[in-house]
Structures are given as C-alpha cells and as structure tokens.
Design a protein around this nucleic acid. Structure first.
Lengths: 124, 124
DNA sequence: GCTTGACTTAAACTAAGGTTTAAGTCGTAT
DNA sequence: ATACGACTTAAACCTTAGTTTAAGTCAAGC
C-alpha cells in the first residue's frame, strides 16, 4: 500500500501539519502507523477517513461532533443507525446554512447592482 | 417614522440584544437615536443598515471588514468604488464557500446512501 | 412603591479551533 | 558532517465573536 508522510498528507488535504497532529490528539483520526523512526505513515485508508473529517469540518461541524462520529465508526456496525441519523441531521443543517447564505447573497448582489449603476451614471 | 426598541429590533433581526449593543460598540452601526430616557430607538434606516450587517455576518464576513464597509458608507459617495470592490470580492468568497460546502455535501450524501443501504440489507 | 426593561463601564469569561514555543531527540539524504 | 524533516510534551498564546458580571442608575406602568 501507499503511505504518505505527514507533510504529504497535509499538502493533499490542504491543512497544516500541526492541524493533523492536533486532530490526532483530539481523536479525530486514530491508529496512525509509524515507520521505524517513529514518523507518521498515513495509509490510503487513513486518508479516506481524513477526507471524511474534512467534509465534516468544511461544512462547519464542531470538532466534538466529528469526534463522536469517528468514535462510532471505530465501534463498528452497531452504530450505523446513529451515524445515519447524525448525517441526515447534519445534511439538513448544511442545506439550511447554504440557503441562508444564498439569501444573504441576494442582499449583497443588490448592493453590487446599485454601486455599479451609480458608477455608470457618474461617467455619463 | 417608525422606531423600534432594542428588544423589537433584536427580535426582528433574530439576534440577542447584547449583540446589538456589542455591534454598536464595535462601530458596526452608528448614531442610534435615544428617547428622553436614553433608550435606543432604531429607525427604519438603522434597521436597513443592520439588515445589511446581518447579510455580511451571515456570509461569514469578519466583524472588522463589516466595520470597514460601514465606515465607507458613512464617508459617503467617494467610497463607492471601494465598496463595490469589496462586495465583488466578498461575493466571490461566498460563492467559493458555498461551492466547497456543496462538494463536501456530496461526501456526506454518499455516507447517507451507504448507511441507508446497509440498514435495508440488514432487514431482509 | 415596586417591578420591568432599559441603561452604563470595564473587565472577566467562554468556546472553538487551532498555532507557537521550548528544548530537545532521531534518522536520512547530500 | 550537517541540514532537513520528522518526532516529543505541555503549556502558553492567539483570534473571533460574543456573553456575563458587577454594581449600580433611571423612567414608566400597575
């Protein structure tokens, strides 16, 4: 299998290395292998997990909730319903947030139109 | 003209009163009139400004940037180009953020599908 | 006359999500 | 051999965006 150093993993996930160490300490990602020298080796499997973590983080899930979700994954299939429930709720929260942003964007676009017109008028 | 007490304004904007006082201290909203007893009176004009502030806040603009924007409004028409520039950049930032959220949502929906299938299978 | 809702300042406090620092130790590549 | 990238712990520090507290004052309504 392919392994990534912390530097490679960080670059791929577009976060600082310090964040990966921080997430590890927080239990957002577990069981990272090490080479003989004690350096972290991120497997494809870990990278997939981290990509999931990033999906949740990018949609503003609090770290503590991501932690809970990861714990459920580690616990195994008995927690699938809980995970499904969490993801459904989170999806709705994200949709709500996107809707709010879209709505707010309307207000911003109105400003853009108004300013653009004003500048046009000033040039005539 | 119609005036609103801080309680009414807060309810209408869906924020705590403490936040309105905080924004005022920060200079996000200025020149709020007072009644004889010193209580804040929010005019329609102030409410409109505050709705703009909320649009920016709801799209995650930092308070310091909102402050700058409001300062420019107060300065008058000479700052219209700066405001237009700021709004155009902010619009792009918001669109980028929404795009990232949408993309991340795909990952979340994949989980939902997988968990749903697993639960279905388990029932057969 | 008392409760309610508003007001004041300044500072402390909170929560989230990291970042930085100190003071080192290792192993690998040039 | 020396620089590079990684490693350690623990605590201190940072920013953002408020919230809370203290210790009052003030005016209006019941």
């Amino acid at each position: 299998m392919n392994y990534y150093s912390i530097g490679e993993a960080a670059a791929q996930l577009n976060v600082p290395e310090s964040t990966l160490r921080f997430y590890e300490k927080k239990g957002l990602v577990t069981l990272i292998e090490r080479d003989e020298a004690g350096r972290r080796l991120y497997s494809e499997h870990q990278m997939a997990l981290l990509r999931t973590v990033m999906c949740l983080k990018n949609t503003n899930m609090p770290i503590s909730d991501i932690q809970q979700y990861i714990n459920w994954i580690v616990e195994g299939d008995s927690t699938i319903e809980k995970r499904l429930d969490m993801m459904l709720k989170h999806k709705q929260a994200v949709l709500d947030e996107i809707a709010l942003m879209h709505h707010s964007l309307d207000g911003i676009e109105e400003k853009i139109t108004r300013y653009t017109n004003k500048i046009q008028e000033a040039l005539t």
